[in-house]
Structures are given as C-alpha cells and as structure tokens.
Simulated scan of single mutants.
Amino acid sequence: MFKKIAIGVVAVLVLFAGFVATRPDTFTVTRSATVPGSPDIAFGLVNDFHQWSRWSPWDNVDPNLKRTFGGAESGVGATYAWTGNDDVGEGQMTIQEASANESIRVKLEFIKPFASTSTTTFTFKPADDGTTVNWTMTGDHNLISKAMCLFMDMDKMVGKDFEKGLASMKTAAQAEVTQRAEAEAARKAAEARAAEQAAPAEGTPAVATPAP
C-alpha cells in the first residue's frame, strides 16, 4: 500500500513539474501615469537614487531599512543597495543606461528572499498636462518562480506597487513644479525691485552732463 501511495505521489509531482515547465519563460509588468511638469522633473526623480525615497513604493516599508549608495552620484553607474525586513528583502539596483529626459534602464538584483535578476525601464514623454511615465519590469522565470505564479498573479502583485509608486511620483513632481514656480516668481520680483531702485526717482530732474 505504501509503495502504491509513494508511486502515486511521485507521478503527481512529475505531472505537476511537467505542467509548470510549460508556463511562460519570461514575465513583463508595466504601468503608466501622467505626472505634473516637464520630463526633466520626472527623469530627475528616477535618475538619482537619492530621490527614490520621495516616491518608491518600497522605500518606507521598513523603517529600519539600510541603504547604501555607490558609483556615480546619479545616472549611469549609480548603484543603490538595500537590506531590510522580510517585506523588502535584500538587493541592489544599478543604472545601466540613461537618455536625458527620455529613458532610464535599471538592473534589479534580488538577493533575499530569493535570488533573481530583472530589468526595469522608465520612459518619459511630454503630455498635454505633464509627462507620461511608463514603468516596466521584465525578467526570466525559473522553475520555482513558474510554480509560484500558479498561485499568485505577479502582474497584479507588482503592478499594484508600481501604481502606488507612480502616484507618489505625481506628488513629488508637483512639489518640484511648485518650488520652481515660486523660485521663478521670487526671481522676477527681485529683478523688478532692482529695476525700480536703479530708475531715477519720479519728479527728480535729470542732471545734465557738462560739455567738455
């Protein structure tokens, strides 16, 4: 009896493994949103890892998250490593390509809770009411991740985080737009005051310059 049960279990496992093997070898998750301001604002929020705390959906999940910045200050070669609780795990990101105000490609490497590597890309396109940001992650499935995807919807799970991150990016971009508008208004006001101070007082006769 035990032998028959064991053979049955093995057969089920073989069938299950065979079915898992037929699942897609790659995955793609993508979300987009329109954020305030010109493309350089959204681009700057992504191109500098120091800015990710303002909008990343994972950056504030663990209040004790340990962050390590390396490589270039921003752009190609910049790195960001993190170590946190079970919700954020451990990993590193590296900016591999950056086309000013147009696109950014990031290599995403997870160490914990399981090792994996994927590619994240951001594109930025001018829109009537701001900038359309497209956030896409692609990668390869191994047998374990294929099996996991039978019990969870990766697009919904990761896509939900992308949507949250893009919503936060809207807030951060709007803050930048407001700050720039205030700075421009202050600059114009300063120029106006300087012009008034430089102009002759009203009613004061101009002093003629004596002829040589």
Rank of each mutant, 00 (worst) to 15 (best):
M1Y: 08
M1L: 10
K3C: 00
A6N: 00
V9D: 06
V10S: 13
A11Y: 08
V12F: 12
L15N: 06
L15E: 01
F19R: 13
P24C: 05
D25L: 11
F27V: 12
F27S: 09
T28K: 15
V29G: 07
T30V: 15
S38R: 10
I41M: 10
I41D: 01
I41K: 04
F43G: 04
F43K: 01
L45Q: 09
N47A: 15
D48V: 03
D48I: 05
P57G: 08
P57S: 07
V61P: 00
V61A: 05
L65D: 05
K66L: 05
G77L: 07
A78L: 09
A81N: 01
G84W: 02
Q96N: 15
E97M: 06
A98Y: 09
S99H: 11
E102K: 13
K107W: 03
E109I: 14
K112Q: 13
S116Y: 01
T120F: 04
F124M: 07
P126I: 03
A127L: 04
T131V: 06
T131L: 03
T132K: 09
T132Y: 01
N134S: 15
T138Y: 02
T138C: 07
H141K: 11
I144Y: 13
I144K: 15
K146A: 11
A147E: 03
C149A: 14
F151W: 08
D153R: 15
M157Y: 09
V158N: 06
G159M: 11
K160Q: 15
D161M: 07
E163F: 06
K164E: 11
K164R: 14
L166A: 09
K170L: 02
A173C: 13
A173T: 01
Q179G: 07
R180C: 00
A185M: 03
A186N: 11
A189S: 11
A189G: 03
A189F: 02
A194E: 12
E196Q: 13
A198K: 11
E202A: 15
E202L: 14
P212W: 09
